[in-house]
Nucleic acid binder design. Structure first.
Lengths: 245, 245
DNA sequence: AACAAAAAACCACAAAATGTCACACAACAG
DNA sequence: CTGTTGTGTGACATTTTGTGGTTTTTTGTT
């Protein structure tokens, strides 16, 4: 069955059932197992290969929890006004933020994210500085020493950061060491650091330490965090903004 | 449906409905979802890609003389093999070249062009280094000192360059000083410099001097250049490849 | 500018398709 | 014999689709 999926990128349940002369329910059970083992993914009416098209993970991440991310982004966008200098990192929520400020003119934007850059280039009344170098294709961004060096040239009014996970007692964590390293470097630059994190980040466990909550001036999220994290926030002096979707 | 939108920049509801044999209302619903997730945007009577598309003047330049550029690109692509290190500049012909090498694996690509970078990121079995810094939004590329500094780190096997104009007696000229400056810097780096220029470049007059023809190892074009330029080429020791569309 | 006709978009509800669950049955190894 | 595993069946939940009616937008005409 996997070999059939290798040829055809995807297949319908009904077709597979007929192909193997078994009931559709049997196919569905097998598909469920394949999904839990990560080798295929279900879609309504059929199955498709998991790894099909390496672009999928990024697009998927952008659309995960889109409503919450959009609301958070819109809230932050209200604090941006003409002529500001912004540093925007490579998270998916940051991308929503970039879309949300598309109507503000005369900004200077520094970013290491290709998606953010693309969004900014849509309107050409902004100044754009791109932190390049070694590109992580999965993340569509550059994290290496060159990206850090370029970012360090600036003293942005505001830095917009996303994060992989927020854990009580630990602070901010991420999954990719390079990404974490880049973020550490930019914490010092901005006069104000705003962290955009939908509520799903509170449940996650990261694998690389990035920074303590005290480095963040504002945390913008869509649901009230668990009490231990609220305690950490007050201790760190971080302002908490909960955007009611 | 997204893949159909990738090819055609936009599409009408009625056409999509007929294409997939479903009712128009179903299409509208799907489009609404695509819009809330930010991947497409609705227009009256149809859908179009969200930020996806390039800016009108740019996409026009890319498609100008597309057949010739594609043929030139295909010819050059034949000289690329697995594992090479390539520097690709920001011209529109270079973009066609990048598309033409999409089937070659394991390349290391250095570029200062966002469009080239985007094309490379489509397949993630290449290594990508992006020369960033101050971004020229009209050209969708970075030309500044930072871009030069990063590019200088490399010694590519092959550099793929485009040019604004080729004049007899003068050599290579461009229209944007910054772009010219960047190109001057990269001429020294590559072991072999290949210039991609459709025949329209021979008639043009540029405004900024870039380099003499002697810096170019190969000139690939689609029609025989005027005799004075052929004389210059032989004098400079440049190989001339004329691709018969 | 005003107005009417036409096209397109939206909404709500019913119908169809698909997915899920629980249970019964058969094959089979220990 | 018994427990395990896989399969099929039917009831039920969920998702998706089509349809009719209504509202909004565009277009053409005066």
């Amino acid at each position: 069955m996997m070999s059939l999926l290798e040829e055809r990128q995807s297949c319908s349940i009904a077709e597979l059932a007929q192909r193997f002369s078994v009931s559709e329910e049997t196919i569905r059970r097998d598909v469920r197992r394949l999904e839990t083992s990560g080798r295929a993914r279900k879609v309504h009416g059929g199955v498709s290969l998991a790894g099909g098209g390496m672009e999928a993970p990024f697009v998927q991440r952008v659309n995960d929890n889109a409503a919450a991310k959009r609301a958070i982004a819109a809230h932050c966008a209200a604090m941006v006004c003409e002529g500001m200098t912004l540093l925007i990192d490579s998270g998916t929520t940051s991308l929503w933020f970039t879309r949300a400020i598309s109507h503000v003119h005369g900004l200077t934007i520094i970013t290491n994210s290709f998606e953010v850059a693309r969004e900014v280039m849509g309107r050409n009344d902004n100044r754009l500085f791109f932190a390049g170098g070694d590109v992580n294709i999965d993340y569509r961004a550059a994290f290496g020493a060159d990206a850090i060096a370029l970012s360090r040239r600036f003293a942005p009014d505001l830095a917009i950061l996303s994060i992989g996970a927020i854990e009580a007692g630990r602070g901010l964590l991420d999954f990719e060491p390079e990404e974490a390293f880049y973020k550490q470097a930019v914490f010092d630059l901005a006069r104000r650091v705003m962290l955009l994190a939908d509520a799903s980040k509170f449940g996650r466990e990261g694998s690389v330490f990035v920074a303590g909550l005290d480095r963040v001036h504002d945390l913008v999220t869509d649901r009230m965090p668990p009490p231990e994290i609220i305690a950490d926030l007050t201790r760190a002096g971080t302002d908490l903004h909960v955007v009611t979707g």
